[in-house]
């Protein structure tokens, strides 16, 4: 199989990889770049565990070809805060007990981030709607919704110094 040279901008850094053109961004992130925070499950854009930010918008990396991402800024969960630090959303998820098995959480946090970036003053219904593409089987969602609302308040009062790249 012929491979093509891809130059991907992920979390502000450039990664050069050789990959077959049919390979998805999810596959390349996890297999070639070791960015395992982006999770794999249904591979059909139904569960949301593979959510990343593409030019700031939440997308499912499982149905996005890596080749489509050249020259476009990608943010994964690893790039949400500097190493050793937590984004207010991450802090809020911990504080609200919104994390059980945790497998859906990176995608959930990124979907929430994209939503809060354009809707800084959300209500509960808005958050539920924004996260409907992310299935969680452990929590029943309530603590996740509460965490996002609380993070929104925190972000309004003191935006993170180390904003996502």
């Amino acid at each position: 199989m012929t491979r093509i040279a891809l130059s991907l901008t992920i979390n502000g850094q450039t990664h050069d990889v050789l990959a077959e053109p049919h390979r998805t961004l999810l596959d390349v992130l996890r297999t070639d770049l070791g960015l395992i925070g982006t999770k794999e499950n249904c591979l059909e854009a139904e569960c949301g565990v593979c959510t990343v930010l593409l030019e700031g918008a939440a997308v499912n990396a499982c149905i996005l070809l890596a080749a489509q991402c050249q020259g476009r800024a990608i943010v994964t969960i690893e790039g949400l805060a500097a190493p050793g630090q937590l984004h207010p959303l991450q802090r809020a998820f911990i504080d609200h007990g919104a994390v059980q098995c945790g497998y859906c959480i990176p995608g959930m946090i990124l979907a929430a981030k994209a939503y809060l970036d354009t809707n800084p003053e959300p209500d509960g219904d808005g958050v539920r709607e924004a996260l409907a593409g992310n299935l969680c089987r452990c929590t029943g969602y309530q603590r996740i919704i509460d965490a996002v609302l609380s993070a929104a308040r925190a972000l309004r009062t003191s935006p993170p110094s180390q904003a996502a790249r």
Binding site: T76, E78, A81, I94, V99
Partner: peptide
Amino acid sequence: MDAPGKVTGTALYAADFAL
């Protein structure tokens, strides 16, 4: 207890495991 690793994407699951 293990939440920080899970929210930052560093927690390792069997599905992530590779050799």
